[in-house]
Amino acid sequence: MDNGVLIQMTDICKVYKMGVVEVPALCGVSLEIRRGELMAIMGPSGSGKSTLMNIIGCLDQPTSGQYALEGVDVSRLSDDQLAAIRNKKIGFVFQNFNLLRRTSALQNVELPLTYAGVSGAERRRRAVAALEAVGLGHRLDHRPSELSGGEQQRVAIARALVNEPSIILADEPTGNLDTKSGREIVGIFQRLNLERGITVVFVTHDPEIARHTRRIVRLLDGKIVGDEPVADMRLAVEAAGGAE
């Protein structure tokens, strides 16, 4: 069954217990994400957007509500089952890159494949392809410390990409980058989305990034307060060209 719905969240709540006090981080969130979307989840800090991303990314589980990923209910799975789903269906890109130090770009990208049980030549081939897709085919053996911030983030995108996930979650991916590299990174996401139809969700408070997507979901105090399409999506590649 494939009706184009990738993620179907219904009435998701997440409550954190701080001692005896229960702090609701998300409350009654319902969200549908379709295959091939390029969207942003926005909101000020404390709005619950990180919690939502953790739940979408299967790093965390909702206290109540249903979450179906590709038609499979994942809201009640065990830790190891969640790990397998993260490995196969989800790619993460973090603000601070989270690359392994003292480890080459290629080995960083191979990491999800090792946990997927892909070995040897196949693993290398796919990792090289992913690095080439983000324009780092010439930097395979460089370590993170030998790469610029933008290049490091591209390695992280290649790592997110390598297992051909259903969705890539990017948490403030440009937060640690200068404007120019940030624009390049957004451009890569746009290209991957346009050319390969990969679903990309940005989690950000930066309206500049949001303007480069087709849909913006706004969160405030754990509730969705807005969900609208972006009428004129900017293309980061054009913007980069225009700035120079």
């Binding site: 830790d79 790990a83 990491l111 946990y115």
Partner: peptide, 16 residues
């Protein structure tokens, strides 16, 4: 700790 977090995020199970 961060490395462990990352490994788990990309699919490492407890026993890995």
């Amino acid at each position: 700790t961060r490395e462990i977090g990352l490994r788990k995020a990309v699919g490492a199970r407890r026993r890995d």
